[in-house]
Simulated scan of single mutants.
Amino acid sequence: MRYLLSLLFCLLAGVAQAAPAGKAYMSIIIDDLGQSSARDSRTLALPGPVTMAIMPDTPHASDFARQAHKAGRTVILHMPMDPATGPYAWHPGIALEELGRRLDTALAKVPYAAGINNHMGSRMTAQRAPMTWLMAELQRRHLFFVDSRTSAATVAAAQAQAQGLAHVSRDVFLDDVRTTEAIAGQLRQGVELARKQGSAVLIGHPYPQTLEVLEREIPRLRSQGIELVSLGQMITERGNQAMPAHGRHGVYSNR
């Protein structure tokens, strides 16, 4: 319920909310969960409101979604999109009726999902018609959207904004380079960005190196002036506005 209230507030606000003086917010999402019980459990043990993005076509998807929800974490569906493959994946050219069926079955595999983000999706998120349909469908279902921004050509967040759907866009990928040094560097970039623009959304994966860095560094964020917040609160803080790297004057570039 608290997520729905937060999202409703965001939609009613209609304008970006600047962070109070000295406040800098960060949200962290871990993708690709549901594949390994050991990695899932280690991710769930991270301190703070880290979001669990669970893939529907994994052996532990449903069980881990229930476990994460019971632990009070935000659960989202990590929706496969082209060039991802599999029974749930969205691809250009698939009829909207079939896209809807795949979304239904994917959401059924990930109970308690408060929203979705794209797994891969560099081709799919650039398709205006299905992204427009998706945002309307998520609005109908009272779900939010996170644009992982796997491609600069994405129109997903722009379509979410155009329809007033509660959403945010990713600012920093933590672990494109899978070493602790590189991941720590990306986290520092996220901290600097949060200080500069008031907030930052980071996405990582349940790699041992990523989890090692987050286990060590999350407890230190507050001393750096960073408040780790849930995605619901982040959506409220941003008020559906584009960050400077994604558009101008709060409006996404790819409209």
Rank of each mutant, 00 (worst) to 15 (best):
M1D: 13
Y3K: 06
Y3R: 10
L4C: 02
L7N: 11
L8I: 13
G14F: 13
G14C: 10
V15N: 12
A16H: 15
A19H: 02
Y25R: 08
M26F: 01
S27E: 09
I29S: 11
D31Y: 04
G34E: 03
G34F: 00
Q35T: 10
S36H: 04
R39P: 02
R42V: 09
L44W: 07
P47N: 10
T51I: 09
T51H: 04
M52I: 07
A53N: 12
I54M: 03
M55A: 07
S62Y: 07
D63S: 15
D63E: 14
F64S: 00
R66T: 15
Q67F: 06
A68V: 04
H69D: 14
G72T: 10
R73S: 06
T74N: 07
V75L: 03
L77E: 07
H78I: 01
M79K: 01
P80M: 04
P80N: 06
D82E: 15
A84G: 10
A84M: 09
G86D: 13
P87N: 01
P87S: 02
H91I: 01
H91R: 04
P92Q: 05
A95D: 15
L96K: 13
L96W: 02
E98L: 00
L99D: 13
R102S: 08
A106H: 04
K109L: 02
K109N: 14
K109Q: 14
A113I: 08
A114L: 01
N117W: 03
N117Y: 03
H119L: 00
M120G: 12
M120T: 14
M120I: 05
G121V: 02
M124K: 06
M124H: 10
M124G: 08
T125C: 08
A129W: 02
P130R: 03
M131P: 02
L134W: 01
A136G: 08
A136E: 14
A136D: 14
L138D: 11
R141E: 13
H142G: 06
H142C: 04
V146F: 02
D147R: 04
R149I: 11
S151A: 06
A156C: 07
Q161T: 11
Q161H: 06
A162N: 07
G164I: 14
H167C: 09
D171T: 04
V172D: 02
F173L: 00
F173I: 01
L174R: 13
D175C: 04
D175G: 02
D176T: 14
R178H: 12
T180S: 10
A182H: 02
I183T: 05
A184K: 07
R188Q: 15
G190C: 09
G190I: 04
V191R: 11
L193A: 11
A194I: 09
G198R: 10
G198P: 04
S199C: 08
S199N: 07
S199E: 14
V201T: 15
V201I: 14
L202G: 00
I203T: 09
G204S: 01
T210L: 00
E212D: 12
V213M: 00
R220F: 00
S223G: 01
S223Q: 15
E227L: 07
V229W: 00
L231N: 09
Q233G: 01
Q233K: 10
T236F: 10
E237R: 11
R238N: 10
Q241R: 14
G250V: 06
G250R: 13
V251G: 03
S253L: 12
